[in-house]
């Protein structure tokens, strides 16, 4: 069997089956407006978590600004799809949102990623705040603190295409030469530099691509949940995304996907316990982190057909990570 056919069979068929099953359930009315909203949130969170995992989990750069990229994507999509009706405006908006977020990510990343340690965390935190405040004050374009209503354009078809597409693109990036460079930077920056990896370039690349998909996630959010305001993209939103990434496992794409689904389901199942819901939710997270401090998946990948090849190569890297380099130990001291 030629490889291309095998790839299509082992990866395409399960995905297509997933798509058709959900489509059938929507058609049969089993997935109603409520479950569809939950599904939408899962898809958005997958895109956001996977893109942050690229930056934090795979390249080892601690970013606290993902909500900022999300905000850029959300507002760009909102403004463009409100101005241009139909799929052209919607898709153009999503693309513009991603590109704008990537541009901002590039501009922020270029100076700050030359530094080592936790400077990036602080710089990205500041960036996200600046973006939020700009949107509050750009009254004429964003309607300020009162928020913006967006045309609802997303449905399951788009969610499926965009979510699966984002994950596949990020996975392929990680398996490219640039992606390998990024992982090398995470493992040991000095060693990577000594064998000729342009570390700044690798970091900026990952950061820019992560920002692009962060913006795309924001655009998906705005196009489904049809109302956005700057407060939504505050510091806590960045933390929410980080929680998914850490819970799923730093350096595991399938971990991020599982965590995004799991957290949404836990949150949904707890909705009946109005008063103690947030306590239960937080408690569950604490318990998971105590028993799985490396995250649900660690840095392994789930060996589904979709991720089979990546899964086979991961263990070597996992062992390398168990013995952190000297520079990382130094970093820990600073962070406390």
């Amino acid at each position: 069997m030629p490889p291309i056919v095998r790839t299509l069979l082992t990866r395409g068929v399960p995905l297509l089956a997933l798509y058709l099953v959900v489509l059938g359930l929507i058609g049969a009315g089993i997935i109603d407006a409520y479950w569809m909203a939950t599904l939408a949130l899962i898809c958005v969170n997958i895109v956001l978590a996977v893109s942050l995992n690229l930056i934090t989990g795979f390249t080892g750069q601690f970013s606290l600004g993902h909500a900022g990229f999300m905000a850029i994507g959300a507002y760009a999509t909102a403004i463009i799809s409100n101005a241009v009706a139909g799929p052209a405006g919607f898709l153009g908006g999503l693309l513009a949102g991603g590109v704008l977020a990537a541009l901002v990510g590039f501009l922020i990343g270029l100076p700050t990623l030359r530094l080592r340690g936790d400077y990036l965390a602080i710089a990205t935190l500041g960036m996200a705040e600046i973006i939020r405040v700009v949107f509050v004050n750009l009254d004429s374009v964003t309607n300020g603190a009162a928020g913006l209503t967006v045309t609802q354009n997303m449905d399951w078809n788009w969610f499926f295409v965009l979510t699966v597409g984002s994950v596949i693109l990020i996975r392929n990036y990680l398996r490219s030469r640039q992606g390998r460079d990024a992982i090398a930077v995470r493992e040991d920056e000095i060693a990577a530099e000594s064998i000729g990896v342009d570390t700044t370039r690798a970091k900026v690349m990952s950061f820019t691509i992560g920002a692009f998909f962060g913006g795309l996630g924001g655009g998906m959010y705005a196009s489904y949940f049809y109302f956005i305001k700057p407060d939504l993209f505050g510091f806590l939103k960045s933390i929410d995304i980080l929680v998914i990434v850490v819970l799923g496992g730093l350096g595991s794409l399938s971990g991020s996907i599982i965590a995004a689904i799991l957290l949404a389901l836990i949150s949904t199942l707890l909705q009946g316990f109005t008063e103690i819901r947030m306590i239960l939710y937080a408690l569950l997270l604490v318990v998971i982190m105590i028993f799985r401090p490396e995250g649900l998946m660690g840095s392994r990948e789930l060996s589904l057909n979709v991720f089979s090849r990546l899964g086979r190569r991961r263990p070597a890297l996992a062992t390398a990570q168990a013995a952190p380099g000297a520079s990382e130990a130094q970093g820990k001291g600073d962070e406390r």
């Binding site: 819901r277 947030m278 401090p293």
Partner: peptide, 20 residues
């Protein structure tokens, strides 16, 4: 890096719990 992250997450979670 990882341990710091766990601490940060634990901190964020306790905040969430307090808000709750």
């Amino acid at each position: 890096m990882k341990r710091t992250l766990s601490w940060l997450v634990a901190g964020a979670l306790s905040l969430t719990a307090l808000a709750g």
